[in-house]
Nucleic acid binder design. Structure first.
Lengths: 340, 340
DNA sequence: GCAAATCTTCCGGACAGTCCGAATCATGCC
DNA sequence: GGCATGATTCGGACTGTCCGGAAGATTTGC
C-alpha cells in the first residue's frame, strides 16, 4: 500500500506550521525566517513533496486577479503592417479560425488586438492585457521582423505563428516548408514530371532561411533522373523575367506562390494542364482554382492554442530558455492546373 | 465598474441550487433532472458564465487520482537494434536524463522498456503497459525505421524523439539540423573561414531527408563570397576517400560527425587548429574534445516530456490527426579543433 | 394497505496552492 | 510604561469536481 502523496497541508502538519508558511518558504518568499525556510525545504525533500503545478497555476492566477476571475482569455496579436501583401489575408483568417476553435474546446477564448500603425502601441498593449488579466498571447505572422520585446514578458506566455522571432525568442508554430516541398516534388516525380521549376519571390525564401530553395536543390541532388533546372528567385513578380527563364529552361511543371504565372506560361505556348503543370506552394494565396500545397493554417492555429494553453497550465510565463519550433507538413490538393 | 464574473457559486445562489448541481448540470450529468439542467444552462448563458478551465483541469485530475502518490507513469521505449552505432549512447543517455528531470518536475515518473531482439515483443509490451496502467509513451531514437503500429494506440499517447516515424505517425521532437548547420556556417563565415567542407555518412543525411546537405548548399547559394565546395557523402567512413576529397577541394574547415577526420586532415599536412579547423555537427558523438554543435538532447528530452504530458492532461490518446514536428536549434560550443 | 426496497434528484465535504490582510510577538525609543 | 516599528506566522477566500449520502418519490412484495 503506497503512502498518500505529501501535500502542503500534510507537510505543514508534520512541521507544526501553517500551510501558508510552508508555501511561502518553498517559493523563497522573504516573509519567512531563513532558518524556518531551510527547515521546510529539507523536510520537503525528505518527504518527497512535489507541488501540483496545475493547482499552482490556478491559485496564482486566482489571487493575482482579485475579483476579475481568470477566464482563460488569450490574445491574438495582429501586426498592422502597411506593406504586407494582401494575399495573405485568407491564411491569417484560417489561422485565427483554428486558434479559436481549439481554444474554445479547451475552455479558452480568443480576443484580437492590433499593434502598430493603425493599432495600439506596444506599451499600451501591455497595460491593456494586464488590466484585462490576459496572460496568453498568440502572435500572428508578420511580414517584417516583429518586435514585442518591450512587453513585460515575466507576466506572459507567448507563441509566434511563423518561423522565426528574435524579439523576444518565443516558441513558434509554422508549416514545414522544407518537407512539404520535398514531398510535392516526390509526388510529381512519381507522376512522370521530369523538369520541375521553382519560381519564388526573394523575400519569401529569405524569411524562411532559404527552406524552399534548399528543399528544391536537395531533391534535385538526390534524384539524378530529374533535370536540375535553376530556380527563378526574383525581387518582384515580373512577367518578362519569368518568361525569359521559362523559355530558356523549359520546365514542364512550375511550382510557386504566384498563380498568374499560369497566364505567362500559356503566353509562351504552354498548355495548362494538357502539356504543362502549375503547382501552388501556398494554396491560401491563390486567386483561382489550382493544384498545390495546403499549408494548413487551421491546424497550425489549433496547435498554437494547444502549445500556449499547455504553458499556462504549467504556470510558465516569460521567455522560454530553449525556444522550439513546431512544424506541420502541408497537405497535397489536386486542382485544374495539373493533369492527374 | 464591471460586475464580477459569475462563478459556479454565484450562479448556484442565483438559481437557488447548490454549486454541485450546477456543475453537474453544465457538464450534462445524468444525475440531474433534465428540466433543471436546461434551466441551469439557460441561466448560465444569460449570465455569461464561463467555467475556469484551469480549475476544471485541476479538480478533474485531483478527484480522479484520489491521492495516489504520483499522477502517472510514462514509458520510455528503447528499440534494441543490434546494428545501431555505439556512438549514439551518450545522446540517448542525455535524452533520457532530460525526459526524467522534466517528467519528475511535472509529477510523472519514467520507466524504461526495451523492445525487439533482446527486449520484449510489441504485443507483450502492449499487455505490460496496459496492465501497469501506463498510457504515455516516449519512443527513443531508432537507427532504422521503428514500427509500433501493432500497439493499441486508442489507449496511448505517444511522442517519438527523432525526425520521422510512419508506423504510426506520431508527434515528434528532434534537433533542427537545418537551422543548426546554417548558423554554424554563418558563424564560421564571420570568423573568416571561406572554404567550409561537409563530410557525411549517406545514411545520416538520408534519414533526415537531406537536411544536412540542404543547409550546406543553401548557405553556399546565398553567400557568394564562400567557395562552394561539393560535400563528401559516403557510404562508410573511409580514410582514402576522405583524403582524396580533402586534397582535391582544400577545405579550410571541415564539418562532420566523425572526429577521426582530424587525424586524416593532419596526415595531409593540415595543422589543426593552426591552419585548419574541424567542427563536429553532433558533439555527443565525439570521442575527443572538439568544437561544434551540441544538439541538446537533454532539452529535447524535457520538451518531449512536456508534449506528452500536455496530451495526457487533455486526455488525448490515439494517433494524432495532424502529427507535428517540434525542433530545437543546436548550441554552438567552442573547442580545441578551431582557433578562436 | 403498509413496510421495505429501489430510484431520482440534489447537496455538502474535501481537495490543491496562493496572496494579502491581520494577528502575534520582540525590539527600540522617549 | 507607552507607542511605533519590524519580523514572522497565520487564516480566509478562491476555483470546479467527484462521490457518498440525504431526502423524497415511486415501486415492489406479501
Amino acid at each position: 500500500m503506497p503512502a498518500p502523496a505529501p501535500t502542503l497541508r500534510s507537510l505543514a502538519k508534520l512541521l507544526g506550521l501553517s500551510r501558508t508558511t510552508v508555501s511561502d518558504a518553498l517559493r523563497g518568499s522573504p516573509r519567512v525566517d531563513p532558518r524556518t525556510a531551510q527547515r521546510v525545504q529539507q523536510a520537503a525533500r525528505e518527504a518527497g513533496y512535489r507541488r501540483n503545478p496545475l493547482a499552482g497555476a490556478l491559485m496564482s492566477e486566482l489571487r493575482r486577479s482579485r475579483g476579475s476571475a481568470f477566464h482563460g482569455v488569450l490574445a491574438a496579436i495582429d501586426f498592422n503592417e502597411p506593406d504586407r501583401p494582401q494575399d495573405s489575408a485568407t491564411y491569417h483568417r484560417e489561422l485565427v479560425a483554428g486558434l479559436d476553435a481549439r481554444a474554445t474546446d479547451l475552455g479558452f477564448k480568443i480576443e484580437r488586438f492590433s499593434v502598430g500603425h493603425a493599432g495600439v502601441s506596444v506599451q499600451r498593449l501591455d497595460s491593456i492585457l494586464q488590466s484585462r488579466g490576459i496572460n496568453g498571447i498568440v502572435l500572428l505572422p508578420a511580414w517584417d521582423e516583429p518586435d514585442l520585446s518591450n512587453l513585460d514578458w515575466a507576466r506572459f506566455a507567448g507563441v509566434y505563428t511563423d518561423y522565426i522571432i528574435e524579439r523576444p525568442r518565443l516558441h513558434t508554430v509554422c508549416p514545414d516548408h522544407y518537407r512539404s516541398l520535398l514531398s510535392a516534388l516526390q509526388l510529381l516525380a512519381t507522376r512522370g514530371w521530369t523538369r520541375p521549376g521553382l519560381y519564388l519571390q526573394k523575400h519569401q525564401d529569405e524569411r524562411l532561411q532559404y527552406r524552399w530553395s534548399a528543399a528544391f536543390r536537395a531533391f534535385q541532388d538526390s534524384h539524378p533522373q530529374i533535370r536540375a533546372l535553376p530556380p527563378l528567385i526574383t525581387d518582384h513578380f515580373d512577367r518578362a523575367e519569368f518568361q525569359a527563364w521559362f523559355r530558356r529552361h523549359k520546365p514542364d511543371v512550375v511550382l510557386g506562390h504566384h498563380v498568374e504565372a499560369v497566364d505567362w506560361m500559356q503566353a509562351c505556348g504552354a498548355r495548362v494542364p494538357a502539356t504543362h503543370g502549375f503547382v501552388s506552394i501556398n494554396l491560401h494565396m491563390k486567386t483561382r482554382p489550382c493544384a498545390g500545397l495546403d499549408l494548413q493554417p487551421r491546424a497550425l492555429g489549433a496547435r498554437s492554442a494547444e502549445l500556449l494553453i499547455a504553458q499556462l497550465q504549467r504556470n510558465e510565463t516569460g521567455i522560454p530558455e530553449w525556444p522550439t519550433t513546431t512544424t506541420l507538413p502541408g497537405r497535397w490538393v489536386e486542382g485544374p492546373t495539373l493533369r492527374s
